[in-house]
Amino acid sequence: MKKLRGLVTGAGAVICILMLAGISAEAQQAQRRVGGKPDFNGIWQAMNSASWNIEDHQGEMGVPPGLSVVEGGAVPYRPEALAKKQENYANRATADPTEANCYLPGVPRITYMPFPFKITHTPTAIALSYEWTHALRPVVMDGSPHPETPEENWMGISRGRWEGDTLVVDVRNFNDQTWFDHAGNHHSEQLRVTERYTMTGPDSIQYEATIEDPKVFTRPWKMSMPLYRRKEPNIRLLEYECAYYLQERIYKDAPFF
């Protein structure tokens, strides 16, 4: 009898534990850790219109309106750089390296393109894979310095480190070819971006990017936005092959000899 009571109590405890486990699945997701750090694995996406314009902008045909994601509202350009921005804006339909030419969008623009991206997070490595033209950023986490490369990179070279539970990615070795948005906001090859990814819940990351480029801006400045987990159970990255679609259009009647 005693034995049976013990068995019943034990079974009850097990059921309770199982129920708790079920109830707190979401909480557990938040607590899941990889190599002692918050688990960033998943498919994420910004939900804003910064890709069209990182500053305040009203709606236009095909352009969703949006408030500035720039801290303080405006990008602190040097005067000659502001003139360049205005020229870019006027020519954006053909001059935007990303929208018009399908070139890699650079950082941080790739983060807020209106497409999902995947973070792969293991105890030793992190990789950012984007649906937009399968852009890829391996984030080296071994504490090594940025390599001395003569090459300038569209997506920069990324070195990650942890500050507590925040993933900090220091991105350098950029070229001067990418824009921050379709509105012509730009930078030089002296660009340095420091990204900070902080989980603020099981399904959200607060993203910050500090932009330094003494040739173009009067001071470092920052943009920030939340990133949201794509929670559809069947979510996955598909293919958006911008260059392929562009080639099919402009070379349709080739050869042109």
Partner: peptide, 10 residues
């Protein structure tokens, strides 16, 4: 040590 950038179309 790492994968570098392979920008082909650009």
């Amino acid at each position: 040590p790492e994968l570098l950038e392979y920008a082909c179309w650009e």
